[in-house]
Every structure is written in C-alpha cells, then in structure tokens.
Amino acid sequence: MFCRRRGGARIADQPYRAERAAEPGIGAAHQDPAPTVESLTAALAAALSPETGARAQLLWDTVSAPSRPPA
C-alpha cells in the first residue's frame, strides 16, 4: 500500500487490491491511515511469512494450471 498526501490529508492508494490479497491470505492490507513502525512491521511480517507464501503458491498453481475443455 502506498500513501500520499492530498490537501494535507493522507490517503491510501489501492486499498481495494490490498484487501483482495488479504482475504485469501496471500498478502496483507495495512489498515492504519497513519503508518507506524509497529503497524508496518506487522503488515510486512504477515505478507512475508512462510504461510502466506505457501497460500500464494497454492493459488498460483491453481490459476496457472492448464484448463481442460468440459467433457
């Protein structure tokens, strides 16, 4: 997630996509509008965990498998 300032207010880029990655457990969404070292550390730890990597690999294997025509 990227943050930027507009008119003095902080807004987040792509929170929808972050949530889409977090729902199946293949990423992490940073919920805090004002990131701290602790909140970013927790989000990165979740995104980079072996469990998240395993779920992402399983999803990749599923979506990248050749499809077969219906029998």
Rank of each mutant, 00 (worst) to 15 (best):
R17V: 11
P33K: 01
R68V: 12
T52W: 00
P69E: 10
S39V: 04
I11V: 15
G7D: 04
P35G: 02
A71N: 09
A34M: 01
M1T: 04
D61H: 09
A43R: 01
D61C: 01
L58K: 13
R4W: 08
P69V: 13
A56K: 02
A42W: 01
L40G: 01
P66T: 10
T41K: 09
V37F: 08
L48P: 05
P50Y: 07
G7L: 04
L44V: 13
P50G: 06
G25R: 03
T52A: 14
A21R: 10
I26M: 02
E19L: 13
P50W: 06
A9C: 02
D13C: 09
E51C: 00
F2D: 09
T62W: 15
T36S: 15
L59K: 06
R68K: 09
G53R: 14
G27N: 01
H30P: 03
R4C: 13
L44E: 07
G7K: 02
P66V: 11
V37H: 06
Q31I: 10
A46W: 10
C3T: 13
E23P: 03
G53P: 03
F2H: 12
P35I: 05
A22M: 02
A34F: 04
E23Y: 03
F2Q: 13
R55W: 04
D61N: 09
A12G: 03
P50T: 10
Q31C: 04
R20L: 14
A47T: 07
L58Q: 15
W60H: 14
R5Y: 06
T52I: 04
A28H: 00
R4P: 07
M1K: 06
E38D: 09
A45C: 05
A65E: 12
S67N: 12
P33D: 05
S39R: 00
A21I: 05
A43I: 05
T41W: 11
M1Y: 05
R10E: 04
R5D: 10
C3E: 13
Y16L: 13
R6E: 11
Q14I: 01
P50L: 05
A54H: 08
A12Y: 11
E38I: 07
R68W: 02
D13V: 02
I26T: 10
